[in-house]
Simulated assay, not measured.
Amino acid sequence: MKEGIHPDYNEITVVMSDGTEFKTRSTIDTEDGTFHSEVDSKNHPFYTGNMNYQKKAGRIDRFKERYGQD
C-alpha cells in the first residue's frame, strides 16, 4: 500500500435513532468520536412496511386519457 494516501481508521461509537449504541471502526472524522444516525431499521419505511407507492400511468395511458381514445 502507498503511504500517506489512506484516511485514518479510528474507533467510533454509533448512536442509533432509538438510543442504542455500538462501537465500530470507521474512517468518519468526528470531533467527539460519536456518529448519530437519523435512520435505522426501526424507523425506516422500507423495514417498517409504511412505504407509499404512487401508481403512475404510462405514456400510452396518458395519451388515451388526453385524446379520449380506447
Rank of each mutant, 00 (worst) to 15 (best):
R25W: 00
M51W: 14
S41Y: 12
G33A: 06
G33L: 05
F35D: 03
G68R: 05
M16A: 10
T48L: 02
D70T: 14
F35P: 02
I28M: 11
N50A: 10
T34N: 01
R25A: 00
T34M: 01
E3P: 14
F63L: 11
D29Y: 08
D61P: 08
K64S: 01
V15K: 00
N50W: 03
T27I: 15
T48A: 04
N43V: 10
G19K: 03
G68E: 03
E65Q: 12
S17H: 14
K42Y: 09
S17K: 13
S26L: 07
D8H: 15
I28L: 11
G58V: 04
P45C: 04
F22Y: 13
A57E: 11
K42G: 08
H6K: 10
P45A: 03
D70K: 15
G58F: 02
P7S: 04
D18T: 00
R62C: 01
Y47E: 06
E38M: 13
N50Y: 04
D61G: 12
K42F: 10
M1D: 14
V39W: 14
V14N: 02
I60M: 06
H44F: 08
F46C: 12
K56M: 05
Y53W: 03
D29T: 13
N43T: 10
D40T: 09
I28G: 04
T24V: 02
I28E: 09
R62W: 00
T27K: 15
Q54V: 12
G4E: 12
T27W: 11
N52I: 07
K2W: 09
T13F: 02
Q69H: 11
H36N: 09
R66W: 05
M51R: 15
F35V: 08
D18F: 00
H36M: 04
K42R: 13
N50H: 10
V14F: 02
Q54H: 11
D32I: 04
